[in-house]
């Protein structure tokens, strides 16, 4: 069955990206520590009053995730570019969406692992007292990350192959993430302040709509941008 074979390809790309990442050692640790560092800097800039910190917690958390996570995306293409492996990759009889899906999934896993470190640190540093529900909070984190990683994976496929890639990726990506930032920060804020889901409900719907629209759009557009 062709779909089963395509899924095998997606899994192969996920395996390759994650294995390479694990072995190169530099990547994950540096990104996670950068996230923590950014949180600390926000703490210095906004604190030390506990109330001010609590109000800023969700926003600081998401900015730390965005600024540190964005480093993951160019790296994902870097490993193809370093060994000139992009050309052989594109010459397999594989539909392009499998490449996008594989990289997207690998990047998502990477970002979620970074969040596993950054979120607890944020809760501690920003004096968060209680969380209305861990499951909804986790859900918001996941939805926001999907939008972030989907667009990040897409734009990095271009930025990683242009000049000034370190600045071009954030320049292209961050304006697109305004709805994600607003929705995730607001929904997280509501949950971190102990408010139940209904406040966060509308934002969650926006996040879901955003994710669907842009992940689909990225899949279609990827075909056009990866070939050329």
């Amino acid at each position: 069955m062709p779909l089963a074979q395509d899924l095998r390809r997606v899994r192969a790309i996920i395996w390759k990206d994650l294995t390479t990442e694990r072995r190169s050692k530099a990547g994950f640790n540096a990104v996670a520590f950068l996230g923590v560092l950014i949180l600390l800097l926000f703490g210095f800039a906004l604190g030390p009053d506990a109330e001010a910190l609590r109000n800023a917690a969700a926003g600081a958390l998401w900015l730390a995730i965005l600024f540190s996570g964005v480093l993951a995306f160019n790296r994902s293409y870097q490993l193809e570019l370093d060994g000139a492996a992009l050309e052989p990759l594109l010459l397999y009889p594989a539909p392009r969406w499998t490449i996008f899906a594989g990289k997207f999934a690998a990047n998502l896993l990477f970002v979620l692992l970074v969040e596993a470190i950054v979120v607890p640190v944020a809760i501690i540093l920003f004096q968060v007292k209680s969380v209305a529900g861990w499951l909804p909070a986790g859900g918001v984190l996941l939805l926001g990350s999907i939008g972030f990683v989907g667009l990040g994976t897409f734009y990095a496929s271009m930025a990683s192959r242009s000049r000034a890639r370190e600045v071009l990726l954030p320049l292209l990506l961050f304006p697109m993430l305004v709805p994600v930032l607003l929705a995730s920060a607001e929904a997280s804020s509501a949950l971190l302040a102990g408010n139940p889901m209904q406040d966060a409900g509308a934002w969650v719907k926006l996040l879901i709509a955003f994710d669907v629209i842009f992940v689909v759009a990225s899949f279609f557009a990827f075909d056009h941008v990866i070939e050329v």
Partner: peptide, 20 residues
């Protein structure tokens, strides 16, 4: 066009999976 952090066998495993 190889992946330097993978072993020889792993590079070929990847190729085999992509080739089907």
């Amino acid at each position: 066009g190889l992946y330097e952090d993978l072993t020889a066998t792993e590079n070929l495993i990847f190729a085999a999976r992509m080739l089907g």
